[in-house]
């Protein structure tokens, strides 16, 4: 299977994107889409993209649900911060450095995307030599708290899925 069509998941995603773009699932569209998907997968193989392994699809979908809830919650929190009176309360923002145990590249990329996509936190930098990442937090109350959130809420789950 992987010899015939490398990157089957990416190819399926490309086919789906093509069908959505065309807006039909007729035989012509599917045929052309399959051609494009095969070409795209072949291109990925030529570029030598390391194949990712997505284990535990159930855990991944559960993670997606948590991310969605978190996005809602932090949208609300950041909107409040922006609309708050400037002198309403003392708010501090700043950088937090977190030491990560995860080494899987796809896991780190997923963590970066999750953290940046939830309002209020932005992944800034990653140091591969000592395995620490730099995070900027808009509403920084307690640094230890943030380290714990990242470890317990995200890193543990992502390691389950990617490692």
């Amino acid at each position: 299977m992987t010899r015939l069509l490398p990157y089957p998941v990416a190819a399926a995603a490309m086919l789906l994107a093509w069908l959505l773009l065309i807006g039909s699932a007729g035989p012509g569209a599917v045929l052309l889409g399959l051609l494009f998907a095969a070409g795209g997968a072949w291109l990925l193989a030529v570029l030598g993209v390391p194949p990712g392994r997505l284990r535990r699809v159930a855990a991944a979908s559960r993670l997606l649900g948590i991310v969605l809830v978190e996005v809602f919650r932090s949208n609300n929190a950041v909107a409040r911060i922006i609309l708050a009176r400037r002198d309403a309360r003392e708010r501090r923002s700043g950088f937090v450095r977190v030491r990560l145990e995860m080494r899987s590249q796809y896991g780190l990329a997923a963590l970066a995307c999750i953290l940046t996509a939830t309002p209020g936190t932005v992944w800034v930098d990653y140091d591969a030599r000592d395995g620490t990442m730099l995070l900027h937090v808009l509403d920084l109350i307690d640094e230890e708290e943030w380290v714990r959130i990242i470890k317990d809420r995200w890193e543990r789950r992502l390691m389950e899925i990617f490692e």
Partner: peptide
């Protein structure tokens, strides 16, 4: 952090 509200 601000534009993430619009983009999510």
């Amino acid at each position: 952090h601000a534009p993430t509200l619009a983009t999510t």
